[in-house]
Design a protein around this nucleic acid. Sequence first.
DNA 1: ACAGCGCTTTGATTTACATCAAGAAAGCAT
DNA 2: ATGCTTTCTTGATGTAAATCAAAGCGCTGT
Lengths: 250, 250
Amino acid sequence: MKTVPLHSAKKPAVACNNCSLSELCLPRGLTREELELLESSINKTVKIKKKDYLFHRDDKQQSIFAVKAGAIKTSLSTPDGEEQILGFYLPGDLLGFDAFARDRHTCDAQALDDTLVCELSMDNFQELCGKLPAMRGQMMRQIGSELEREQMLLLTLGQMRTEERLATFLSSLSERNKERGFSSNEFNLPMARHDLANYLGMAVETLSRMFSRLQEEKIISVQHRLVKIEDMARLKQLAHHTCHPAGDVL
Amino acid sequence: MKTVPLHSAKKPAVACNNCSLSELCLPRGLTREELELLESSINKTVKIKKKDYLFHRDDKQQSIFAVKAGAIKTSLSTPDGEEQILGFYLPGDLLGFDAFARDRHTCDAQALDDTLVCELSMDNFQELCGKLPAMRGQMMRQIGSELEREQMLLLTLGQMRTEERLATFLSSLSERNKERGFSSNEFNLPMARHDLANYLGMAVETLSRMFSRLQEEKIISVQHRLVKIEDMARLKQLAHHTCHPAGDVL
DNA sequence: ACAGCGCTTTGATTTACATCAAGAAAGCAT
DNA sequence: ATGCTTTCTTGATGTAAATCAAAGCGCTGT
């Protein structure tokens, strides 16, 4: 097993403590020393072009990743070419946990845009988990969030009608933006209609109709990817199925 | 934090090494000494009567649990009383990971039958994770499986038609039984129609119709909860959407 | 045994959504 | 700009599955 230099002589390429995402990402709750150890363990930041893959299903797991800029979607696909999008990962989100079961990724991860991710190798990850209980705790929380997010999506797909699904999605994207200090009333969708429809388990046409419907009802206004929430109360009401205020990823 | 006696004088109440489930449960891959440490950390085994709850949503997480006998369902429910069943946990399955995100459970866990579970307190769990890398690894794998299982269910709910959903479910239950040394061709469903229908995101009536349809097509035969698979090849073909042979829980 | 209750199946009808089809708008290259 | 491709919206039609309704079956307990 590779060992991590405890205090590397030269300044690491990655500086988590300067990163605007440090409160959302792994560093949260770590002490100064722990943070330094983490920084020196981050292997590098990687650029991925739009439509390129960060990993494929069945790839051996090398690392876990943190999105720094851009957006990633993960999806499962079937022999006959059908796909189900499992999640959208935006800046501050971690991904790669899916491979914990068998050391191989269980889904594909593709960039929706030109994207920047930080990479932490599994070796380093394991070592940090052994050494730093706080780091292990933070990691557990991240995995827990992932589990929770998928559970919410199950509820959405299993129980809600299409309008509710969209309302729920918009409401949680809004929450998410608020948490990150962005506007909760006006934002751009990071994904195309096609991807969102698939994620929400409906046809693109249906999604489009639901956007129109919410607009007619004066709950939102949309043009292309720009969404404005005009009546948050009614949106939340439509999305009342949703139990959680929080949620880390979409 | 409580400390775990390294070698308790008296024999622990729990004997993982005698347990028929040790190959599926936490002990897998642990050395003799590690196993002893685990055994002495298991707090107790708990009995839960049919319809009683192991935990509720928002309960503070005290423990993780391993099902020894019986069956547990986990579910999410909405303010207006709708429910989505998230998983069925059978002997050898672990549950409780959902609380990792916020130290509180994100779903309810209810016994489908009189049930026996082993309980490992979070304190002991944390301690073991720090001490035993093998144990931490096994735990990560378990969590990974949970994530993977939920992903498969998302694919099922998002993309499949009702007949495919049932076929997929039966096929994976069959696999699961084979792995545990039970018959893969003939088994009892551990849950009522109502619960299965909800889990698969359809109405009870539709589920019933799909059972009938599969029976008409001579793929299975059903009476009450007893299912016989008459034509495994065609069942798998119907369930072709499913990518994975494995899968730990349902 | 019987009644009574919950669970399951089957049938008739309705409906939400998918599919099919076409047009409008936006992005991209030349 | 111009045309071309891709993405998105809207309309018309079809269908899978929900809902409504009722009957059959298998429990439980008296």
